[in-house]
């Protein structure tokens, strides 16, 4: 249900987007189509050949279409290995 995101309100969440990016932030707002507002957002950037980096994004709004997963996470369980980014979801554009 849409309520299943509600329990993460004001908590730190990890959002995986359909282009394979991983964005962490405090969930301050959401709606029934998973449009999200993240406060203090950071992107965890994975690059093949160098260790993951954190990039500060600030206040971020993500349109629901682009959301793949929303999850809570164990802060200490992130990999520090140099791994490539997640593959994107192939989707056809509905324009």
């Amino acid at each position: 249900m849409a309520h299943s995101i509600k329990e993460w309100r004001d908590k730190s969440v990890c959002v995986v987007t359909s282009d394979g990016r991983i964005i962490l932030g405090e969930l301050v707002g959401h709606d029934q189509v998973q449009n999200l507002i993240l406060n203090d957002a950071k992107e965890r950037v994975f690059t093949e050949g160098s260790a993951p980096e954190m990039v500060e994004l600030g206040l971020y709004v993500i349109r629901g279409d682009n959301v793949c997963m929303i999850a809570d996470y164990d802060q200490n369980a992130w990999t520090e290995d140099a791994v490539p980014p997640l593959p994107p979801i192939q989707q056809h554009e509905n324009i």
Binding site: V16, Q34, R44, G64, C68, I70, A71, Y73, N76, W78
Partner: peptide, 13 residues
């Protein structure tokens, strides 16, 4: 997919 090992409870669209 080591990028995702930290996830615990997960909402999937």
């Amino acid at each position: 997919y080591p990028q995702l090992t930290a996830l615990q409870n997960c909402f999937v669209r």
